[in-house]
Every structure is written in structure tokens, then in C-alpha cells.
Amino acid sequence: MHLLQPLRRLSDAVNQAAIVTCVACVLIMLGISFTAFLYKLATGSTLSWTYSLARLFLPWIGFLSMTISLRYGEHVAMTLLVRSLPRVLLTAAAGICLAVIALFALMLVWYGWGYFQGATQVYMVSDQIQIPSKFTAIVIPLSGVIILLHLVQGFDLLEHFIDDETQLDELIKANEGEKRS
């Protein structure tokens, strides 16, 4: 049990790093697109490499966003169905859900690592800009490792155990506190 607390803090830190990385990727993509727009306005011609370079960040955004949404319990879940189950079956369903998530993460790591190792192509963005395909391939096993790390959060990843009435009471109290201020 003493090992879980540092791992949970590590999971939170990795999640924050994933958020920062996703934001940076979006900003880089916007910067590239804005550069292309300004160049088109100034010269009337287009830069051929901007679209190709900008789209290399999409896998990073997609896969890291998946890990972020898992950490906040925003993944696909059949909450209404699961919440109607008795507590024992609810716990069993949540355990099965976590096991399926772990299996998916292990498959991402296993097959993603093989894909990464076999990625030998080079993206020819332009004559001068050549990016190895390993740049985009590494995000697949990396996201699997992050998902496995997030599993130390246990049932907190699942919204099945969130008590709606308690959550509503907390929101009402917070809203009342803001009105008094």
C-alpha cells in the first residue's frame, strides 16, 4: 500500500506532462499553419511543407489525449447500466473494466513497440525537412505505458463509483460560497 501513493503521484505528474505535451503540439500545429497563412498573404504562393509537417503532431495529440481522458474518467462507459447493478456486481464489472483497459494498454505496448522498431521510413516533409517515422510511432507504446501507470488509480478511473448526490451537494456548497464572497 505504501508503493501505491508514490505511483499515484507519478501518474498525476505524467498526466500533467501529457497535458503540456498535447497543448504544445496544438500550439506548434497552429504556429505552422499561421506561418503558412502569413506566407501566403505576403507572397501569394504557398509553402509546400507546412501541411505535411503539421499533421505529424496529430498522432501525439490523439494518443496522449486518450491517456488524459482515461485519467479523468472521460472514457466510454455504460454508467447507467452499471450503476443499476447491485454493489457486488458493480465492483465485479469495474474490475473487469479495469482488466480490459489493462489488456488494451498491454496490447498498445506490445504491438506498438514492434511497430516502432519496424518504422524505418522517413517522412519527406520537404527537401531539407526529413523526419523519421519513429517520431510518430513511439507515441503508441508510450501511451500504453501511461495507461498502465494510470491503472494505479484503481476505481478512481471509473465513474461508476461517483455518488451523484454527494457531487451535487459539493457543487451547491461551492456555488453558495462564491455568492457570499
Rank of each mutant, 00 (worst) to 15 (best):
162 I>K: 15
45 S>K: 03
120 T>K: 10
63 F>T: 14
2 H>D: 05
171 L>Y: 13
173 K>V: 06
160 H>K: 04
28 I>Q: 01
23 V>F: 01
3 L>C: 13
68 I>L: 08
100 V>C: 05
163 D>M: 13
119 A>G: 02
81 L>W: 07
135 F>L: 06
41 L>I: 14
104 F>V: 12
2 H>W: 13
103 L>R: 09
106 L>C: 15
104 F>C: 10
31 G>T: 12
75 H>P: 04
63 F>K: 06
30 L>P: 00
167 Q>T: 15
117 Q>M: 14
135 F>C: 04
121 Q>H: 11
132 P>C: 10
26 V>A: 09
90 L>M: 07
41 L>D: 01
49 W>M: 05
180 R>A: 08
92 A>K: 05
144 G>V: 00
11 S>F: 06
116 F>T: 05
38 L>F: 12
70 L>T: 09
59 P>R: 11
49 W>T: 02
127 D>C: 03
158 L>I: 08
124 M>L: 13
137 A>D: 05
28 I>P: 01
54 A>N: 03
56 L>D: 02
116 F>H: 05
158 L>Q: 03
23 V>Q: 02
131 I>A: 01
53 L>Y: 11
62 G>A: 14
20 V>Q: 01
94 A>M: 12
3 L>W: 11
151 L>A: 04
79 T>K: 12
8 R>N: 05
101 I>V: 12
140 I>E: 00
142 L>D: 04
145 V>N: 02
35 T>H: 10
77 A>V: 08
17 A>H: 02
10 L>E: 03
71 R>E: 06
166 T>P: 00
10 L>Y: 05
79 T>Q: 08
78 M>Q: 09
37 F>G: 00
117 Q>L: 15
129 I>Q: 00
82 V>M: 13
69 S>F: 14
66 M>G: 09
130 Q>D: 00
34 F>V: 15
24 A>C: 11
116 F>V: 05
159 E>V: 15
170 E>M: 14
56 L>N: 01
47 L>H: 04
158 L>G: 00
127 D>Q: 10
62 G>Q: 03
144 G>K: 00
47 L>N: 02
115 Y>F: 13
158 L>R: 01
93 A>K: 04
94 A>S: 10
91 T>D: 07
152 V>K: 02
157 L>H: 09
126 S>H: 06
